[in-house]
Design a protein around this nucleic acid. Structure first.
Length: 450
RNA sequence: GUGGCCAUAGUUCAAUGGUUAGAACAUCGGAUUGUGGCUCCGAUAAUCCGGGUUCGAUUCCCGGUGGCCACCCCA
């Protein structure tokens, strides 16, 4: 009986308070709000500048592609494709995917637009969102943004080294300390030899039983990935395993050595990591990852990578193009911003020389709106809030945005053909001739700079 | 995908099995109808969702959702 009464009360309550439920974002998706966007501008500017200097041209490709594109290029067994890709059937019953990485689309574009007819190498710059259905945490989103550079039609180790050096400079110039992890996984031929040897190593007595579940699968599906398993028991088994750098064919060995030599000369610090193999099928020869250098030793283990890439000499042909050597890398914008925030690197200070135009009364407002346009065209950094009626609110706004000067136009000034000019720092204001506005502003801004 | 911790105004944080869930910052209004910053006064604004235990749940329990962290993997 009392319970019933309670339920009734509850129903009434919910009826009374029933509001439309506010919508919320999808999990793992982030809005970039005003303050955050200042970091984006900083990072994107750096990306743009570097790309331009090194002659990479921007390209944009659709976010939606055939699912098969990624299955073929990145490999059906790769984690990105098998576990994380957003795949669905569209209205034409086509299997489509939200792009989980940039390279396959860029390879597709290179082939589809016959870019082998352009002067080689073709250097591309990509900046856009990628989608992976991961379990989100900080630095891991379901939609993230990558800055990608890819170079097609260049087999020289100079290309590898240059890309790595660009990536390195990107971070260094944003004042983020990073380290390059680098390895070579050889070409079809020498990797084939190596995998055979690796497998025979793992077939030695009792080793298989010590491996984790995933590694047992890797034995048949993707043996190279045995090398970078983080499972303790697997790491133990791995000791004494043959290393691929020792088994590279002459061409691959020379290539790798030269990449390292160039890096030495460019003063790019790197760390040879024989266990770095990366999770995508298409890599050949050079592979690398960029990780932050962390002061706190306890944290060393959980360093997330800020970027990665490598060479993929067989992919263009494999995807139906002419044989074309290529290499590239991607950098995570959100993770980069996270690092910048961690380091408390100060952002650029407030805008300079803001002139605020304030008005009182409708007549004055009309004239002020015209004045605003004139000043804007004359190149002044003007601001306004013409929707506000009270002068108090307008000055408040001027103060908030850090205006240097405020022009005040009211009925009185309208009749006298004058205007008030107020210095926002000192609070001193003067009546000046309306016709002399420009020169008076100029004078005051100029004085300030001295 | 697996495991751990968590969920209160816009934000950061309080409090409580029982009258009205409290503060700071932010926002809006006023003190000041033609003058911002400082001050004072006031207002708006929250217990994630669903179920259970209970006379009574925001508090305890279960489930969901979301967040953080670790792992897997990656940017």
């Amino acid at each position: 009986m009392p319970r019933k009464a309670n339920k009734k009360a509850k129903v009434n309550k919910t009826k009374k308070e029933k509001k439309t439920k506010p919508f919320s974002r999808l999990r793992g998706m982030k809005d970039v709000l005003f303050d955050d966007y200042r970091y984006w501008e900083l990072v994107i500017k750096k990306a743009n500048d570097l790309a331009k200097i090194y002659s990479f041209k921007r390209i944009e490709t659709p976010i939606l592609e055939k699912a098969e594109l990624y299955e073929r290029s990145s490999g059906k067994t790769s984690d990105i494709v098998s576990k994380e890709m957003y795949v669905f059937i569209d209205k034409n019953k086509e299997r489509v995917a939200l792009r989980p990485e940039a390279t396959p689309s860029l390879v597709r574009a290179y082939i589809e637009h016959g870019m082998f007819n352009l002067p080689q190498p073709v250097k591309m710059f990509f900046l856009g969102p990628l989608f992976r259905h991961e379990k989100p945490q900080s630095g891991r989103l379901r939609q993230h943004t990558q800055f990608d550079l890819e170079m097609f039609g260049e087999a020289s180790p100079v290309a590898d080294a240059q890309l790595i050096s660009i990536a390195y400079n990107f971070f260094r110039e944003l004042q983020i300390d990073v380290q390059i992890q680098i390895n070579s996984i050889g070409c079809k031929e020498c990797r084939g030899e190596y995998v055979k040897k690796l497998l025979s190593f793992y077939k030695e007595r009792g080793k298989r039983s010590k491996l984790c579940k995933d590694c047992k699968k890797r034995l048949t599906k993707n043996p190279l990935r045995l090398l970078d398993c983080k499972e303790q028991s697997c790491i133990k088994v791995r000791e004494g395993a043959p290393q691929i750098v020792d088994m590279l064919c002459e061409e691959c060995r020379q290539h790798f050595i030269r990449v390292l030599e160039y890096l030495d000369e460019l003063d790019v610090p790197y760390n040879l990591n024989p266990f770095l193999v990366r999770g995508l099928d298409y890599y050949t020869k050079t592979v690398f990852e960029i990780t932050p250098i962390i002061d706190d030793e306890k944290e060393v283990k959980r360093q997330i990578s800020l970027g990665g890439g490598g060479r993929y000499d067989d992919l263009v042909e494999f995807m139906g193009g002419r044989p074309t050597p290529a290499c590239g890398f991607g950098i995570g914008i959100e993770r980069t911003i996270l690092k910048i925030k961690e380091k408390n690197i100060p952002l650029e200070t407030r805008e300079k020389d803001i002139v605020f135009v304030a008005q009182l009364g409708d007549q004055a407002r009309r004239k002020a709106m015209m004045l605003f346009e004139e000043l804007r065209r004359a190149g002044f950094n003007v601001r306004q809030s013409f929707t506000k009626d009270s002068l108090k609110q307008q000055l408040e706004e001027a103060n908030r945005i850090g205006a240097k000067l405020c022009l005040i136009l009211g009925q009185k000034e309208l009749l006298d053909e004058t205007i008030l000019i107020r210095d926002m720092d000192s609070g001193v204001q003067e009546v000046i001739d309306y016709k002399k506005i420009s020169s008076e502003i100029e004078k005051r801004l100029h004085n300030e700079k001295k």
